[in-house]
Amino acid sequence: MSMDSVIKIKDLHFSYGGPKILENIELDIHRNEFIGMVGPNGSGKTTLLKIIMGVLTPDKGSVKVLGTPPSHSVKEIGYMPQLTPFSRDFPISVEEVVLMGRLGKTSSIGFFNKADKRAAEKAMNDVEVLDLRKRAIGSLSGGQLQRVLIARALTCEPQIMILDEPTANVDMKVEKDIFDLLKQLNENVTIIVVTHDIGFISQYIDRVACINRTLICHPTSELTGETIENMYGTHMHMVHHHHEHEEGNKL
């Protein structure tokens, strides 16, 4: 694994005009790492992701993604949202949804071209939804839809994938399938996954980034029963846990 940095955040602070949402964030993610991101609701996880994707600008601090400011690198990021903001009865096929991932990589006028279709086909094949390509998006099961959204994130041939709770609405079997799939993809792509189920995914990830206004990273090897318990814990536990590690493991 080469150790060059794909995401480098230094001394980042962010607020929506009121109280600090993120404070003093330092983060350095290397190529082909698999990062799990945890934290209670409202801890700033999604805000940090939005900053990495250039949607929000920090009040202070520097963010470099693939060596450039986030707004320049966002097209190299494959993103899978937590909630699906679209309506399930939108008349669109699986293949058309997956092709959306080509935007920003393909020509800006006209229809999708042969190269786009090939990339979409490969992505659908990778996540095993190729046989669903003609199906309407509204006819899919929860697990199928999650896979299709991963395929959409993959079609831009991303260097980084960011997935916001990719297994929120699926059963354990599907969850395992999806993480096995991500582990495969991880051979070529740096992956950041937001999750609540850190116990389950600790076998897949390299490091855990714990966010609650501040950020602390743990290598998975340090994950003991106690730290996992702490992460699972309530809001109070999370804060407590942060104080515990303030000095030692900050990256």
């Binding site: 994707m53 949607v55 966002v74 097209k75 990021i77 993103y79 949202p81 699906t84 903001p85 679209f86 939108f90 669109i92 058309e96 949804v97 092709l99 959306m100 991932g101 935007l103 920003g104 393909t106 800006s108 006028i109 006209g110 229809f111 999708f112 959409r152 831009c156």
Partner: peptide, 23 residues
């Protein structure tokens, strides 16, 4: 519509994703 078919489809289907793809 022919020129910007992709963008119109993306924006009407999923605005947030379209924005992240640089539309």
């Amino acid at each position: 519509v022919f020129l910007f078919y992709k963008q119109f489809l993306a924006v009407s289907f999923d605005e947030e994703f379209a924005r992240l793809r640089g539309i």
